[in-house]
Amino acid sequence: MTGSIQMKTVGLVGIGDMGSGLAKNLLKHGYQTTGTDLNAERMRAFTHMGGLAVSSPSEVGKNSEAVFVMVMTGDEAKAVILGENGLLSHLPKGGAVILSATIKPREAIEIGAAMDGSGVHLIDTPVSGGYPGAQAGTLTMMSAAPTEVLDEFAPVMDAVSANIHRVGTKPGDGQTVKACLQSLIGAQFSATFEAAALAAKAGVPGQVLLDVFSTSSAGCGVVDNALEKIIDRQFEGTGSHINTMHKDLTISMDLGVDLGVPLHTAAAAMQIFHAGRSKYPNGDNWACARVIEDIVGAELHRKAAK
């Protein structure tokens, strides 16, 4: 652990694909970590790795100086932060809610307004890097809070992140940057899915496509990882459930409506993810490629069929 040595107790609400990675790295860096989740299996796994599992956000708050909130929706974030058994009324003065979930910017603004005057800080800091980044402690954070607050809580954020970008000072600033990022990532995903189906129909082996893409100017972590999953036919259980990206693209599109910005490519990506989620509701992001493969009647495998 670097920086200030006073902070020892950290909390976590939400111990799923992303939250389990946060927990792993907080414990690795020596923080006493208290957490809660609605899923009993996740709670058992958290206890096994050394965390203290409790039954409510209020208990997390009582045991913590800072709490990461890694839930799915803005309504869930509001409930665990502001609700009757929420964090706000139980965290100590000077403590912080570290909002690492991706929600609508206006929802983060609403949470910040409700917390104003409470003596508890809000750090609006959605993350990028997915399941691999969470598990490795290499997430990118888009952090918004006053400078002195970010300075104070930098050590605990460093425990889970390799890149912390200070993108603003107000609630909603972090979520706005994340919405812009997800509009781009969604487009990268959907273009990869279409290119994979095109190659499959043309009879190009998946390994050939991966070799070319990964060494070209189009190659990047998003494209390379998606193509790896497609050619190895790994469409479930990879830690990147389709519901999350579908939700994130909805947020991007919603922000576009609020600001009057046309998002033509993000809209196309949104429809591809909507189709994937409709046909393969238990799938991960890469399941979208299967929808296009189903249409063209060809599948992309690492090796060409003999």
Rank of each mutant, 00 (worst) to 15 (best):
L82Q: 07
E65I: 04
T9D: 15
I123S: 07
D258C: 04
M245G: 07
G283K: 00
Q6P: 02
I123M: 05
D258M: 05
G174Q: 10
A113P: 00
N285D: 14
Q207M: 09
K24E: 11
T147P: 03
A79C: 01
T147M: 04
G206Q: 13
D173E: 13
L209Q: 13
T9I: 00
H48V: 06
M7N: 12
M1A: 14
P262W: 06
S100A: 15
A287H: 02
S278P: 02
A268E: 08
W286N: 11
A40Q: 11
A305R: 11
L249E: 13
G50I: 07
A108W: 06
L249D: 13
G112F: 02
G11E: 05
S183H: 06
A226R: 08
G130H: 08
H29Q: 11
A200F: 09
L82T: 10
T33D: 03
F153D: 13
L198P: 05
G19F: 03
I164S: 12
G11H: 06
E41I: 06
S214N: 12
T2S: 15
A197R: 08
G35Q: 02
Q207Y: 07
V71W: 01
D75Q: 12
A202E: 10
A289Y: 02
Q6V: 14
K229L: 15
A287I: 04
V160W: 04
R302F: 04
D248M: 09
E110M: 07
G206Y: 10
G86I: 12
A226P: 01
E152A: 13
E76P: 00
Q6S: 15
G61V: 01
K104E: 15
T34H: 01
A196V: 07
G237P: 11
S190V: 13
G14E: 09
Q234N: 15
